[in-house]
């Protein structure tokens, strides 16, 4: 790619993409911290995670402001225009990811280490996959690698499947013993948050596709999350 004749324009665009990388790194870190806090029942780490969200929020505002300024001053065209618009969109996805991680951290105190052993590994797998999707999609952004972005986009299906199984398992726990309902609900929200983070990663992947190719990904994404239509039949013999 040739450089812009106006160096300051080139610098503006570079600064935007650096800021996204920085924001992405922070979101990754925040997600990792929240999961660790949940797994190790570490309240201190949870509090630290909650506090860290502020920096991400500030970065989003900074990116938005800079992007608006670039549009106003430089009237970007074609690829440059798509870059600036996509930067705004991705920063908003990353901000949401930060919020969701923060929300997981908030639930650590309520869950208070009551995660059933059988669920720990499921949670672990889910968070690992979410972190991998986020990392890969950020790499795809930095290297403008459409194929990598599309792989993330498809991989989200696996995260949905994991969420599905955790959802069912939690329902079973709640039916077994009503005292489980409180922490299970928190865990369910936690799992849902991780699943939503995957959705944001796919949004980012779609935006990378648009940024590089100029074409929207219109193909229907494979979806495995069917919990919103799941029903659970109460069995007469159940002990509730």
């Amino acid at each position: 790619m040739q450089k812009h004749i106006v160096t300051a324009f080139e610098d503006d665009l570079k600064a935007l993409s650096h800021k996204i990388s920085k924001m992405g790194g922070l979101a990754e870190e925040q997600l990792a911290m929240s999961i660790k806090a949940l797994e190790t029942n570490d309240f201190e780490l949870a509090k630290k995670t909650i506090a860290a969200d502020k920096v991400i929020d500030e970065l989003e505002l900074d990116i938005e402001e800079r992007a608006i300024l670039v549009i106003a001053k430089r009237q970007p065209m074609a690829l440059d225009l798509r870059r600036v618009i996509v930067t705004i969109r991705i920063s908003s996805d990353l901000e949401r990811i930060g919020d969701l991680a923060k929300n997981i951290a908030k639930r650590v105190i309520a869950i208070d280490g009551q995660t059933p052993k059988s669920l720990v590994s499921g949670f672990h797998a889910m968070s690992e996959l979410a972190q991998k999707l986020l990392k890969d999609v950020l790499d795809a952004f930095a290297s403008e690698d459409v194929e990598k972005a599309v792989r993330v986009w498809r991989k989200d299906e696996d995260l949905d499947a994991l969420y599905n199984s955790i959802f069912r398992e939690l329902l079973t726990y709640m039916m077994e013993d009503t005292r489980n309902i409180s922490f299970c609900t928190h865990l369910l929200f936690g799992a849902k948050n991780i699943e939503r983070i995957g959705d944001h990663a796919t949004n980012i992947a779609e935006n990378i596709h648009y940024m590089v190719t100029g074409v929207l990904l219109t193909e229907e994404r494979p979806k495995m999350d069917n919990t919103s239509t799941s029903k659970f039949d109460f069995d007469e013999n159940s002990n509730i």
Binding site: Q2, H4, I5, V6, F9, M77, A78, L79, D80
Partner: peptide
Amino acid sequence: TQDYITGRYG
């Protein structure tokens, strides 16, 4: 076209 309309050396 891209280089021209985005103000790059062409």
